[in-house]
């Protein structure tokens, strides 16, 4: 479980969560808060993975259903789902995931490179693989959760 922050740059804390049958993790520094699922207001003409917007203390927060974003089957969210609020550049975005599973401390050397596969989604999001107790956790990058190109096209 969680450890105190280590000043060594090669060691990082990661937050792991489940989406469907897979586990992913992101850098804990990007996470602002974790909250329960609330019904989102659907946005017209938005990509399928944008479930809508919710009220986060007065700010309008878009909710990205990470499963759909990563090409996994969509599940109708229930009260058991959680929203991980992350900061990406100047924007805050809510990631809809099934559950938060772990907080890990990993050295850069623990992270294994992603095998070269043809999937664009894997290339875009998965930055490395982390073996933990026989599980495989994919380290994902959030830069393209709301792709720049799409944002400009809007």
């Amino acid at each position: 479980m969680g450890q105190s922050t280590n000043s060594d740059a090669s060691v990082r804390e990661l937050i792991a969560f489940r989406v469907g049958r897979q586990e992913f993790c992101i850098n804990v520094m990007a996470v602002r808060e974790i909250r329960g699922w609330t019904v989102a207001t659907a946005l017209p003409r938005s990509p399928r993975y944008v479930r809508g917007v919710i009220n986060l203390r007065g700010a309008v927060l878009p909710i990205v259903e990470l499963a759909v974003r990563l090409g996994l089957p969509s599940n109708e969210p229930s009260a058991r789902n959680v929203i991980i609020v992350v900061q990406i550049a100047h924007q805050q975005i809510g990631l809809l995931v099934d559950a938060v599973s772990d907080i890990l401390t990993a050295k850069d050397s623990n992270i294994q490179p992603t095998p070269d596969v043809s999937s664009d989604l894997v290339k875009t999001f998965v930055k490395g693989l982390l073996p933990v107790d026989g599980r495989m956790i994919s380290l994902i990058s959030l830069d393209h959760v709301l792709p720049q190109g799409e944002m400009e096209a809007a």
Binding site: T41, R45, V60, A154
Partner: peptide, 25 residues
């Protein structure tokens, strides 16, 4: 409330607001 602050402009929608039940309209 601005939609652009955390997302982007949505065609057909001018802005958003929060209703009394806490939901965004």
């Amino acid at each position: 409330k601005s939609l652009e602050a955390n997302y982007r402009a949505v065609p057909g929608i001018a802005a958003a607001t929060v209703m009394g039940d806490g939901r965004v309209a």
